[in-house]
Amino acid sequence: MMRYPGFMKTSAWLGFIFLYAPIVSLIVYSFNASKLVTVWGGFSFKWYAELLQNDQIIDAAMVSLKVAVSSATLAVVLGTLAGFCLSRFGRFRGRLALSGMITAPLVMPEVITGLSLLLLFVALEGMFGWPSGRGTTTVIIAHTTFCMAYVAVIVQSRLASLDESLEEAAMDLGAHPSTLFFLVTLPLIAPALISGWLLSFTLSLDDLVIASFVSGPGNSTLPMVIFSKVRLGVTPEINALATLMILVVAIGVLAAAWQMRRQTRRAPAA
């Protein structure tokens, strides 16, 4: 272990405090009985109860979940295809176009993506009558488009680190390229697909800007409802909602960390 100056450690701790202090206060005040968010009025689950009765939030959460699951799944399918083509097909017609379009969404400001997709949907509707109005479908299409870029990048880097001799061995043993993909390549990149799906799911669930552009009336996603409430100020119900969401994420991350820690511990013994 190399030593490092003590101030490094101190500033690192301050950094972690900076990262967690707002989250902790958010959670603490979600249990505050008082409506005045900063005055402590005793411990209570009141806001959680109100949250569960708030139909607007519940409906929006359902819309968001539906959108997130569908677009994550679609993004994994399309993103895997794109990543696979880019890293295993060598040169093919349209390679440059594909590789350019797959990295561009990563640097595109959300406002531009949102606006341009909305204008496209309006134009398509004007010309072909599809999509008729905007709603869940248009949001799913929009989310799939920017999420598949992330999936493609993850899949591509996983394929790049993969030992190609595994695929060559399968071909040597007589696997046709199409069987090869399903029997060898796909199982090998499964971890990348899972993390790509989870990332897409989170990105979709989290998106406010693009959804605001492309969703229609009555199809507000959860971030849109939160944003409209939060704009008016701090409300304890949102604190309760945030606490629940952080709890879910924390359980997921802790489970992953526990798994990782077990693996790092087991590794030296093996």
């Binding site: 707002p22 939160i226 701090v234 945030a242």
Partner: peptide
């Protein structure tokens, strides 16, 4: 952990802060 938590809610946390 914060990276996976809703971005909107993390910004909101600073409003209360």
């Amino acid at each position: 952990l914060p990276f996976w938590t809703s971005f909107l809610l993390r910004v909101y946390a600073w409003m209360g802060f």
